[in-house]
Design a protein around this nucleic acid. Structure first.
Lengths: 232, 232
DNA sequence: TTGAAAACATGACGCATATCATATTATTTT
DNA sequence: AAAATAATATGATATGCGTCATGTTTTCAA
């Protein structure tokens, strides 16, 4: 974890979040001046559950997993995977002082840390910005909530099928997963044991639903996957 | 479902949501003029999943359950129980045109329906109001998300114990549940079968953890309940 | 008040899924 | 390159929990 050499201005950042569309130039400048641009290596923990909330994260480059740890359990729950352009930590705004989840880098990452107090100040001063943030929060959380609830009503094959559809459609935007996901990652995203993941992936490979080359999964038969997901 | 005879002004509503604290008097007047005050009877559906979003609901009197229905499943999932003073439907703001969950009255209810377009307009124009709404959304959703995720890591006794703690602490604010909850309601809130609920409630009664008089549950031993909840 | 329907209760059974034990294969470290 | 560690794989076993069947009680309508 080192500070990136060149710290671009937010004003000409090409892949900045659409949440910032309604910030004025002076406001964007404030964001730009306050932000820290940090590089994380694959595997590093970007944010640890329980630590103080100091910033909202903008993921400029790379992929991360957002997960929750539990007191009386070894296994974590992965809540979401994020991709370049995503804002992380909006749900901690105006909230408790300690972070409610952990974030870890799945690949090398570039992260912009935006001071959360500045963020909150801008929300109060600029209603349009606030509206965009509300929109973003609502969109994200309702999708994630849906995913979790639907998961409860499916058995294992359906759960993994659903998870893979979410990953292709909303994270990797491609039939091929651009990032190596361990069996354990998949287990924590679907709330099952990693042994079960192994078994189901074997079934999926035998049925030509997916291909798995060194952990890089590719969806071969989307229709079948959707069917498995629906039928539970 | 009939329109309530006397429609009080929001300006002197005693138990209005703290979200409205930063609205100006003219803004509050707009809300007041646009709102519909409706009375629902116990058991009636207040809002149906899939219908058009037209309003944010303010629960003035009574208790409701908020739940999600699924295509390929008989059983619903209850997401939350709401009490007087709660705003319902904030997560639909700036979202899809159709409602993502259903709401049903557990008791007779008084509900204020606030036009959602007005609500959105006020958010854009008044950043302080928007900030309060963000705070409220984040507080609610993070609590509900936590509950669901923790639920996944517990087995049945722990799940019901946790559910009862949430109900006492955040819904009924009392050791005694002020509302009749059916076995099926409890099942849908804890994502288990109603037969399992029956069995576990029997255990809890035998162990003097709860008392159950005609469906009105009272917590007798909170420490024990917390322990069961923790240990899963 | 009576009949019908809904909610509650309880035991027997079966299945899905976690756990355990043990290989085998990859990956990292020295 | 060798050793050590971690990730993946796979069969056997155990069990938690849902489903089914059946009975009882409560609620509600006529």
């Amino acid at each position: 974890m080192i500070k990136a050499p060149e710290s671009y201005s937010c004003i000409d950042c090409k892949n900045r979040s659409e949440c910032f569309a309604n910030l004025t130039e002076p406001e964007l400048k404030l964001v730009s001046e306050s932000k820290l641009n940090i590089k994380f290596n694959k595997g590093e923990i970007i944010r640890k559950q329980g630590s103080f909330v100091t910033s909202v994260l903008f993921l400029k480059e790379g992929f991360v997993k957002v997960y929750k740890e539990f007191d009386h359990s070894e296994q974590n729950s992965i809540i979401n995977f994020n991709k370049p352009g995503d804002l992380i930590g909006l749900t901690d705004i105006f909230g408790e002082s300690s972070v409610t989840f952990s974030v870890a880098a799945l690949t090398d990452c570039q992260v912009c840390c935006i001071n959360i107090r500045l963020f909150e100040k801008l929300l109060v001063e600029n209603g349009k910005f606030a509206a965009d943030v509300i929109k973003s929060i609502n969109y994200q959380t309702s999708a994630l909530f849906d995913y979790q609830l639907q998961s409860n009503h499916k058995q294992l094959h359906g759960r993994i099928a659903k998870a893979f559809l979410v990953l292709t459609d909303h994270v990797f935007m491609s039939n091929t997963f651009g990032v190596y996901l361990s069996r354990n990652d998949i287990a924590e995203f679907t709330n099952m044991s990693s042994m079960s993941v192994v078994r189901i992936l074997k079934d999926f490979k035998e049925d030509q639903v997916i291909e798995d080359k060194n952990g890089y999964i590719k969806i071969l038969n989307r229709d079948k996957l959707e069917n498995i997901s629906k039928l539970g």
